[in-house]
Nucleic acid binder design. Structure first.
Lengths: 319, 319
DNA sequence: ATGAAAGCGCTAACAC
DNA sequence: GTGTTAGCGCTTTCAT
């Protein structure tokens, strides 16, 4: 009836009745039932955001970018967390799709067959984020992690480091970390270098792990002159450890991490790192979804590649 | 029809037809429409989780606890973020309630009148988390931040520190930080002490801010012998700064933070802190919601107080 | 064990 | 400008 019209502020309603309705709604504590509304209108202003984790700075920052943009639209983000498990991703995706959201923003390009099928058939804008080394279902926005690894590998080789150690997460399912590593070794190979030692961890405080792993690796391979960490948090742990040991940075040993987490700003020495453009990725993905929801004649398949910028910090020797 | 029965695996369905239905569903790529289901059944397996922020370790950990418990139930968490703004909280709450969730888990005890009214009238289990210094709408689980502040104040006074500085967030809306501060000054007062200097920040990298603020404060008040930080991140920044300056910790200056973030484990010195029981709070809140959803004859009004445990670390002098 | 029918609380399209 | 009506795609209840 008319009530619906005023609550949705559309159509022509006289000022008088609108006032009456609004007042009645307030005194009755009326909260519209979106379920019924959505069913009737075949419209749900929810955007499913599916990410692997909330506990490492990176995805919260992506979320910030997404929320920021969606705030100016009728759309609302709903997050689902997969813990880097394809099975959970499948389940979460299924759950979310069954609410018929207006769009999906999902981290990564690799999904199980079933997830892939769901995304293909959803009939809504799908934006795969973070990574662009692969084939998207629809739109994608991110950086090339392979390139990011290459850039860092090249920067290290150019600076004359020779004996390089790699420290990372033991995450066969973190495809982006894997691609970075691949790019990294590739770039080293071009300069005739290779990774001399490596160590992987899982779980626990990243800062503490970085410290332990660094100690373990240097005890084992004291001749290393560079340590490349797969994320800034373990890199920070390593940095603190080396500083304590009085090891010369960046001459005796150089260091680099990945991510550009703002945490680093407070460290005694600025760790070299590479910005993953997380905020901008979130914003761009949200913008794509918002635009395509607003105008469904728009074509899909957008591909936005961001440029991962290297931040030299103080832990690489000068050229 | 029958299809509904097999998909929901209830009622008596012959094995033969079940097979047929399942097969058909798979080949058609059928995803049930939860909207229609929810409307018809008046049941929505969603739990609204409303928190102020995702970017400081603390709420992700609460989320972990919640997810962990809900995973074993049909319930699913849906998070909304308020950025410590009562207006946004109101909006987020309204949005979420209009989806008729099965329960609400919301951070804090202070809400706008409108939010309060919505919570009271929602007719579903409401669990207010983190804080127990106040009057809950329904259930609450958390710690007493006032007590946490008091405990730390007492510990400091007992150890003979006299000139105490406080460094915290400039967050008039972070009621928990405020209550901790109140408890803290109260405990100091009991020993005839007071906060000699204080400084507040907002925004930016907490680690860097901790460093800057510590420098600023010590430049201004060089005679301070204790610094109490409202969170571990700025505390860690301060610790790193003091260590660099070669200041004797904990003798010349003692330090303490708040939260027990696992980050600390990797620092060169263990910052004294106080555990806020975040994981356990998330778990308990989820358990309450799950139980009450499963059996709606259960009474409400649960009150669970956790014990904030002090962790002496290495930055308080011994008794 | 299966089918039929009546809603759930809205929106959309159409009368008035 | 306002009221009326017919669904939206399920679940539920009641027949068969």
């Amino acid at each position: 009836m008319t009530v619906s019209r005023v609550l949705r502020q559309r159509g022509d309603v006289s000022e008088a009745t609108r006032k009456r309705v609004l007042e009645a709604a307030k005194t009755l504590g009326y909260v519209p039932n979106k379920i019924a509304g959505a069913l009737a209108s075949q419209r749900v202003n929810l955007v499913a955001v599916i990410i692997p984790s909330l506990s490492n700075m990176v995805f919260p920052e992506v979320m910030t970018g997404i929320s920021e943009i969606l705030e100016e639209t009728p759309l609302q983000p709903v997050v689902g967390v997969t813990n880097y498990s394809p099975e959970r991703e499948e389940k979460v995706l299924y759950e979310m799709l069954s609410w018929r959201p207006s769009g999906v923003i999902i981290a990564g390009l690799e999904h199980s067959d079933a997830s892939h099928a769901m995304l293909e058939n959803a009939g809504i804008p799908i934006v795969e984020i973070m990574d662009i080394d692969g084939q998207p279902v629809d739109a994608m926005v991110g950086i090339s992690h392979r390139l990011a690894g290459q850039k860092m590998g090249k920067a290290i080789a150019m600076r004359g480091y020779k004996k390089i150690g790699f420290l990372g997460t033991k995450m066969p399912l973190d495809h982006r970390a894997r691609k970075r590593f691949e790019g990294f070794t590739q770039a080293l190979a071009k300069s005739g270098l290779e990774v001399s030692d490596q160590e992987f961890y899982s779980g626990g405080s990243a800062l503490a792990k970085g410290r332990e792993m660094t100690k373990a690796m240097l005890d084992r391979s004291p001749d290393l002159d560079f340590l490349y960490y797969s994320n800034d948090m373990i890199g920070a742990g390593g940095l603190l450890y080396l500083l304590e040991q009085g090891i010369g940075i960046p001459d005796q040993i150089g260091l680099a991490g990945f991510n550009g987490v703002e945490l680093l700003a407070g460290l005694p020495r600025r760790l070299a790192t590479m910005d993953a453009c997380r905020l901008e990725i979130g914003r761009t993905a949200a913008r794509i979804v918002a635009e395509r929801c607003a105008d469904d004649t728009l074509p899909g398949g957008q591909r936005v590649e961001m440029e991962p910028k290297i931040d030299l910090g103080d832990t690489l020797r000068p050229l």
